[in-house]
């Protein structure tokens, strides 16, 4: 049995705002019965004030999917469309007191439905490239097809890169073997079979080829308590600098704007702005920083900076 919080149970057993909203002027529909999760979010937005006056949902899914939908409606009623757009799946999960890692995709579905509904309200086309395929990363609901595409398009060669680009494998890490299989398959197909060359000098075999494991993972933990503010800032700048070539390869760029405690504001530019993968890129930056600093930080777009900060 899943370890659901009381808040999740409350929203599952007595969901708020379930049913059909006849007066809706914005509808977002995501998921599919094949996936086992589907959500229709209906909003009534006041065209003058842009305030979401009412919201209702219909959900096909497990306990946490229903709870996430219910929580979402409670969170957005009374907010303006722009205020609502700021909400992330993490906010939904936090509102519920957390979700089991395997269930985080339920909160993602909520956030996706919200975006779809608002796009519908604004008359924009909502597109998502999620396709059917063997599910690889269960935490984030990433299938083999999506990983293949990311690997092919971006020329990814390592598990770490796949995680940064797609989120796959970034949570419970149990799917790493499967991701590597997909990676190997794509690389074999495209002929980029050279990841090993990176690690060992060509032509060297035997013991010489075995390089000591980088002491990296141990470092950040030790450093976490010792970093001065200046060192921490330099570490963040260094990590972002290291990620830039990868992002620039896609015609985008990332720039550090401000550091406010655990909130790190960055700006995605070039091809990144408006790209459907930008959330994944932000997540990738965040994971890199968490790894580098050995502490939890949150990467946010500069557009979310509090007004007084600038």
């Amino acid at each position: 049995m899943w370890n659901y919080t009381d808040k999740v149970k409350e929203h599952f057993f007595n969901p708020k705002n379930s049913g059909v909203l006849d007066t809706a002027n914005a509808v977002g529909e995501v998921g599919s019965i094949t996936c086992g999760d589907a959500l229709r979010l209906m909003l009534k937005v006041d065209p003058d004030t842009q305030i979401i006056q009412d919201a209702k949902f219909q959900t096909f899914g497990c306990g946490s999917a229903i709870a996430s939908s219910s929580a979402l409606t409670e969170m957005i009623i009374g907010k303006t469309v722009d205020e609502a757009l700021v909400l992330t799946n993490r906010d939904i999960a936090d509102y519920l007191g957390g979700l089991p890692p395997e269930k985080m995709h339920c909160s993602v579905m909520g956030a996706e439905a919200l975006r779809a509904a608002i796009a519908n309200y604004k008359g924009e086309a909502w597109e998502d490239d999620h396709e059917e395929g063997e599910l690889v990363c269960k935490c984030f609901g990433i299938d083999a097809a999506m990983i293949e595409r990311a690997v092919t398009v971006n020329g990814l060669t390592s598990l770490e890169e796949v995680t940064h680009y797609t989120k796959a494998g970034g949570s419970c890490q149990t799917c790493h073997e499967k991701i590597e299989e997909v990676l190997e398959a794509v690389m074999a197909k495209t002929g980029i079979l050279k990841p090993a060359a990176k690690h060992s000098p060509t032509g060297v075999v035997g013991l010489d080829a075995i390089q000591p494991l980088a002491a990296k993972p141990a470092e950040p933990a030790a450093a976490a308590s010792k970093l001065t503010n200046v060192q921490r800032m330099q570490a963040i700048m260094g990590a972002i600098e290291a990620m830039r070539p990868q992002i620039q390869r896609d015609g985008g760029d990332v720039e550090l704007v401000d550091i406010d405690g655990k909130d790190i504001y960055v700006r995605l530019t070039g091809a990144c702005s408006g790209c459907s993968q930008s959330a994944g890129t932000m997540m990738g930056v965040q994971m890199k920083l968490v790894e580098t600093l050995g502490e939890f930080v949150r990467v946010k777009p500069a557009s979310l900076m509090p007004a007084h900060a600038n």
Partner: peptide, 18 residues
């Protein structure tokens, strides 16, 4: 969303994102 309450039967529901 797949169930038509009043009719007591299934209804069409095909989200764009699937």
């Amino acid at each position: 969303p797949y169930w038509e309450q009043s009719a007591g039967k299934a209804k069409d529901f095909a989200p764009v994102y699937s």
